[in-house]
Design a protein around this nucleic acid. Structure first.
Lengths: 193, 193
DNA sequence: GTTTTAACATACCGATCGGTACACAAAAAA
DNA sequence: TTTTTTGTGTACCGATCGGTATGTTAAAAC
């Protein structure tokens, strides 16, 4: 053993995640990273590899925490309809209070990197698929409880809701009127019958 | 008057549009632009200003042609339901045949630039609002003809469809199964009742 | 034909990019 | 205490970035 690390690997990774989330891959420079992470370049490279590897590690950290947060949020409501309403409205509130609006790190990456890098095409697709499964389980719970019609196609419905969630998240980046956003959520939630 | 331009301004602007559409703002370099547009740097600067101005001009060209194309597509079907189905399915087909999938230039810009540049926040928002109006007019046509229920909230519904369209376009960048995409479209179109 | 005007191509600018060589500092191993 | 190992900070690498100065060429104006 030699000298011990002076920085907390989780903390500096989190700082990198915040930065990539906010600015994307290309627009984030190594200088941005060193100042935000509070460590020097060689420390980044020895701990996380090059810029792309660091980005991937940060994104994986994001998706895994985002997935478990999503599961938790949807479980904290008895009513499935209320659960989805609260979930969507929370997305809106966060986006309006964030300035600049960061949106979803995974969605940002789908747009910026997925079309040109198969690794991120797969990573982002699998995250969305995973979220769809969480949605589906929630819908199935609603069917079980009798809140939703028994002939509901849980899988197809969950996929449509994921698509709407993505669209909502992206749309919010242009800061549309609240009424636009509220209308779309209201209409979309009528799918839960 | 001095020497006349040797290049077609519309053609080279179109080339720039294709490139920005495919790679985004940051990832497109001036060298990429000169080689794709077939003209030298000073010609770009004299004809279109700096990189950001050229990008904005290219995006405006895109949104205006995209809007009129959308209106045309929705008008070519008697049935409003069929019009929207064909419209959504066309988006899917184009995305799957494009490699890499370019998605929508305006949506790409919403994600990359809108959060950090008010000019593009406004420009992209207004394009989406304009598309929403086109959707709304189409829905109102369906109400008039009796195809859609008379108590349909055309505005709210059009906004929800825009959100789904954005979500679909973004989701396609991760190349999900056709079944995922078909399911979401099928469910979303049940909103047209 | 001469002058004037503007587009052309080349070659270059300083700044910044991602990435690393190297010397020094610190802590474990001997 | 000495040796070995590994992290840290500095200073630098070549490449590329967006943008421009400059000299040349071509066409309109006279």
């Amino acid at each position: 053993m030699g000298r011990v690390r002076e920085f907390d690997e989780e903390k500096v990774l989190d700082a990198a995640m915040q930065l990539f989330w906010e600015k994307g891959y290309e627009a984030t420079s190594l200088s941005d990273l060193t100042s935000r992470m509070g460590i020097q370049r060689p420390s980044i490279y020895s701990a996380f590899g090059d810029k792309k590897e660091l980005f991937e590690t940060a994104l994986r950290k994001y998706t895994s925490s985002r997935a478990s947060e999503t599961r938790t949020r949807l479980q904290t409501h008895q009513s499935v309809r209320e659960a989805f309403r609260a979930f969507f409205e929370n997305v809106v509130d966060e986006e309006y209070s964030d300035s600049p609006s960061r949106g979803c790190f995974c969605i940002n990456t789908m747009v910026e990197l997925a079309p040109h890098d198969e690794k991120f095409e797969i990573l982002t697709r699998e995250h969305q698929m995973y979220l769809a499964v969480i949605f589906q389980e929630t819908i199935e719970r609603g069917i079980q409880s009798g809140e939703l019609a028994s002939d509901t196609n849980a899988k197809a419905l969950s996929q449509a809701l994921i698509v709407s969630l993505i669209g909502l998240t992206v749309m919010l980046k242009s800061r549309p009127d609240r009424s636009f956003v509220n209308n779309s959520i209201e209409v979309t939630l009528t799918l839960l019958r």
